[in-house]
Write a protein that binds this DNA or RNA. Sequence first.
DNA 1: TCTGGGGTCCTAGGACCC
DNA 2: TCTGGGGTCCTAGGACCC
Length: 431
Amino acid sequence: MFALVDGNNFYATCETVFRPALAGRPLVVLSNNDGCAVARSEAAKALGIKMGAPWFQIAGLVESDGLIGLSANFPLYGDMSNRMMSLAAGLGPTQEIYSIDESFIGLDGMRGDLVERAHKIRARILQWVGIPCGIGIGGTKTLAKLANHVAKSAERKPGSYPANLARVCSFAVLSADEQQAVLQATAVGDVWGVGRRIGAQLKEGGVNTAWDLARLDPATVRRRWSVVLERTVRELRGQSCIPLEDAPSNKKQIAVTRSFGRSVSELGPMLEAVSEFASRAGEKLRKQGSFASQVYVFAHTSPFRPPPQFSRGVMVPLRRPTADSALLVAAAIAGMRRIYEPGYQLAKCGVMLLDLVESSLYQAELDLEPGEDRDQSHLMGTIDQLNRRFGKRTVFVGSAGVPQAHEWAMRQERRTPQYTTRLADVPIARA
DNA sequence: TCTGGGGTCCTAGGACCC
DNA sequence: TCTGGGGTCCTAGGACCC
């Protein structure tokens, strides 16, 4: 048995916790460079604002409907997430933190009334952290997800599902008839694992609801689509195929990519950007104790602008796996020099670290030549510690010919205003 | 003028091998 | 008409997730 605990409109709610006057108001949290909406309050959804809506297209709602746009504050959300997760963990013996606002809880071995218990945990999270959650319970992860969808929908859209399933919904305690009714009331596109593409194909074939999907023959689904969708079908039928992953595993690839606030044409700023990204990627790499074998560097123009378009990437193999920022930065710069071409309005670039290996495993077979340095791993650890203690970029790796990597980052940060809407009249909560 | 960032898994098809 | 058969490895791209 699984539960899925999920914070409502997470980023938007986090902001509201610290500014209670925002409650009930249409509010969106904006992505990097205030590009588009990545979270919406209920009132913002009611205005018809879609997930990912570009800010410049909805900015008019500030005047007409009192819409508030806030630049994202990810450290705050991360902190709120930690608090929420530690309380959610009280629901059962195991926990998988699935994303910043969601965790699965393994409920095997739990006795007593799970619905009542879930209501208590939910109330505690609301009281102690200030985040309202939806909790779904089911015999498989997919059913827990679906029950969570029911819990949230029943609360927000009265009439979509029975009212007694609001906030906490356990699929497991429903009768067979009730389960069927819930599945029939759920659009196939709302099932976890069914995206836009496959959702459209299913509907074309007359498969419109979760109930229809559950009734398809798994072998046929595998042939027509894939084992992934076959698993979804089986999970909808109550056969658990996706286990709980309570030990977070290391990333298999690490990426740092950004869109620019303004387009960039010159090589210099591009080199600054990838230097910064490679350095940040290196920090993440060392944090999980891995070495990278390859560095992928890419850049492209905005797909939303008229031609000429440019999109290019290159794989830069490292002489041997490393976590040394100096080597990663050098590889990223070499890659950028290789793909760069003047004459384009570049909108985005990024650095990815690939073919990661566990550093302890690799080091065991390291056979260094006489006098060869061990990748300055001690120095890197010191830099990471200083930056953790005194703030990002207190110490950073410079590169010959590209001395201003941190300047690029600083300009990026300054360009993002903390708030796009004046909040002078909104009081800040005091403890 | 202005359109996010970071992941995972699976599959098909080509290269290569005996 | 029919052109061997089977295996592995790698990669690019698709689809999904939040």
